[in-house]
Design a protein around this nucleic acid. Sequence first.
RNA 1: GGCGACGUAGCCAAGUGGUAAGGCAGGGGUCUGCAAAACCCCUAUGCCCCGGUUCGAAUCCGGGCGUCGCCUCCA
Length: 464
Amino acid sequence: MAIRVYDSLTRQTRPLEPRVPGRVSIYTCGVTPYDQSHLGHARPAVVWDAIRRHLMRRGYFVTFVQNFTDIDDKLIRRAAELGRSVDDVARQFIMEYERLMDQLSVMPPDFAPRVTDNIESIVAYIQKLVEQGGAYAAEGSVYFRVRNDPEYGKLSGRRLDEMLEGVRVDVEPEKEYPGDFALWKAAQPEEPAWPSPWGAGRPGWHIECSAMSQRYLGDAFDMHGGGMDLLFPHHENERAQSRAYLGHEAVNVWIHSGLITRGGVKMSKSLKNGIAMEQLLERYAGHVLRTYLLSVHYRHPLDFEEQNLDSWQTALERIYRLWQDVQEAPAAGTLVAADWAASLVHFEERFLAAMDDDFNTAKAFAEVFDMVTATYRGINAGHAEMAKGLARRNLLAADQILRFLPDRTEFGDDRLAEVLLARRNQARKDKNFALADVLRDTLVEAGYEVLDGADGTRIRRLGQ
RNA sequence: GGCGACGUAGCCAAGUGGUAAGGCAGGGGUCUGCAAAACCCCUAUGCCCCGGUUCGAAUCCGGGCGUCGCCUCCA
């Protein structure tokens, strides 16, 4: 069955048809490293990671490029505030971003190009646009002729004339047309600058993605992604540039992830309602945050509410309990005929079908929860060996894509807790329940969950 | 003002024509020394409202109401 994806340009869901059979090339807009990363930066990264993993699971060879825009107005301003160089500030936040992504089990991109390492390509790209008449130099800057593209506005669903009604007043006077945007910005004092045919300066905001996607993926690639807020102007402009440069469409499918809101309002710096990942990761494990972001369909807005995150964590606990119970289970032997057994046997098909359907991770998780229930049903029905064997296989299959299992799955690695547990077991054997309860309370207070079962007692450190 | 999205149980959330997934919270049971865990049963005759199309609509069409996003830097 083909993978179906929603394309922002055509506003339709259609089968994914890679340009080169068996291979999928992807470019996504990364971050401008001028400050700490917040949840809004994590969402697209996690979503794309799940998409990549699913494509790989389906047998595609995936090439994934995600850039860093390490020269830009915000970055220049920030560096000035901090009294440090732009490069220095950018490097710091890039490192922090990469560390956070690692905590969220996000695979590093195959290429993570930085704008400042690609200036020559960008200049060459602009030069060709100028030669073709798609762009013009003025006062040391270069602007893109937006009106040359009859399709300008199609991606973001707007019309040029309508858009300019509300355009801000301080339009650069050297522009031929107010809607034109800068490809190259003439150098300002105290700002980093590179040489170019139009004088010293630096790239405008949108050109880097056209130039770098072309450099790393070629004249055409399969998927282009980013947050919904990049649709306009960033992706609209990017599309116009690439079409002018190439004479054809560069992108096959445009994919945009929904924004994160708080109290229904978008997270943004100006409203000071962003949540730093750093801070969140102090209180929640990486896989809890990662999967919380995947618990909602990627195109829908996600209203961040700490209580909902807590509910999600509670839900995950049930999966972890099962995992600890089955991770060492041998492969299932004979199969019995029962509803729960069929459900365990066919789990992966259903799980992958959910992912095939526009990467419906919310539905995929529902399949996982169903599978957990079916497993316990089997265990309670007296078929523990078969149920556990299948559950182990199924959890590993789902985890390949969703990455919900904790990194450290051992429990009881705490010697003291083991001693307390042994004492409690003895107390219970002696029917000294008062002592047994005290020992249990002590373990619970120490952050353990105490699970009495038919085949002995297990303890499990919460949050793992 | 223009363009676009969304509105499903107390809360979160799938579902785009065939009779409401999943999770959290809550109630009742089974099991257990007790508790926890686990399992079973229950919890939306209804999917913002009003019309329409259809044998049949949460899903399609029209009109409202509400919330949000983009139009300016933004993942």
